[in-house]
Write a protein that binds this DNA or RNA. Structure first.
Length: 91
DNA sequence: ACAATGATTGTTTGG
DNA sequence: CCAAACAATCATTGT
């Protein structure tokens, strides 16, 4: 159910498309990518991705908290552009 | 009002 | 530049 669209635009949604915000995983990845790659010199691209995911959940909910916190802040960012987009499109 | 959907976010490496 | 694997997201939409 709900197949993941391999990503990369596929369909249009909105005229200005405010784009949503990032996910905690993105913030976590920003830091982990450094670690994972540091511990796995020469690791393959697809492999790192998997290892990353394992690490992500490997953390305790409290550890993801800091990441969620950033995701939370990013969401606000989206809200802002969304408001602008709505305003613009309404005009 | 409620439910489901879709679209999106960022990272990794390599030709 | 783009591709998959990884996870979250969560706002928008339609009836």
């Amino acid at each position: 159910m709900a197949e993941r669209r391999s990503r990369t635009q596929k369909k249009k949604k909105d005229p200005n498309a405010p784009k949503r915000s990032l996910s905690a995983y993105m913030f976590f990845a920003n830091e982990t990518r450094d670690i994972v790659r540091a511990e796995n010199p020469g690791i393959a691209f697809g492999q790192v991705g998997k290892v990353l995911g394992e690490r992500w959940k490997a953390l305790s909910d409290d550890q993801k908290k800091p990441f969620e916190d950033k995701a939370e802040a990013d969401k606000k960012r989206y809200e802002l552009e969304k408001a602008e987009y709505l305003k613009t499109q309404q005009q």
